[in-house]
Every structure is written in C-alpha cells, then in structure tokens.
C-alpha cells in the first residue's frame, strides 16, 4: 500500500490470494456425523474452516489447499477427501 515508504502492507490483504487453486484433494464435509468438536476448524492451517451452527462446519474452497488434516483428525469420520476435479 506504500511501496515508496518501505513496502508497508495493509492488514489481512492476503485474502485476495485464492489458494484454493492449489488443491489436488478436496474435503467434503458431509455434515451428518459431526459431533461438533471443532477440531477441523482448530487444526486448519489456512483458517478457512468455519462453523455454520453447532455440529455443522464447512470449508471455504476459495482458500482450502486440500491438506486433509481436517479429514484425518475428524473423530467421527464426517469429512472425506476426494480427488479434485479440474
């Protein structure tokens, strides 16, 4: 935002960068067996899993890189990974 004054950037502007384009595997949140532990949200390195309501979580594919941590750590098996179709 001020390249001339030492390259000062504005807060949170990386959201313009849609890292979802990197994804090879895609998590599907079935929202059926969810027990509402929130581990998927807590463990997401992108911070792109959000809670819609209790026991109902979703992922923002704009940013999800498909690491699969959410599916691996989900204790109820509600999240499944699929190959991304491009």
């Amino acid at each position: 935002m001020r390249l001339d004054l030492g390259a000062i950037a504005k807060a949170g502007t990386s959201k313009a960068n849609q890292t979802g384009g990197w994804r090879n595997y895609k998590p599907i949140f079935h929202q059926e067996k969810c027990i509402g532990c929130g581990l998927c949200k807590i463990y997401c390195p992108e911070g792109c899993v959000t809670m819609i309501e209790k026991k109902k979580y979703t992922v923002d594919y704009t940013y999800c890189k498909g690491c699969g941590i959410c599916a691996e750590e989900c204790p109820s098996g509600d999240i499944e990974m699929f190959v991304e179709e491009k």
Binding site: A11, S14, N17, T19, P45, G66, C67
Partner: peptide, 12 residues
Amino acid sequence: LAAGHTACTGCG
C-alpha cells in the same frame, strides 16, 4: 492470520 497465505499444504 488471514487466509490466502502461501504456506505449503499442511504447514505446521
């Protein structure tokens, strides 16, 4: 720590 950062997939 806003999304859109360019850490590798699964970055600890």
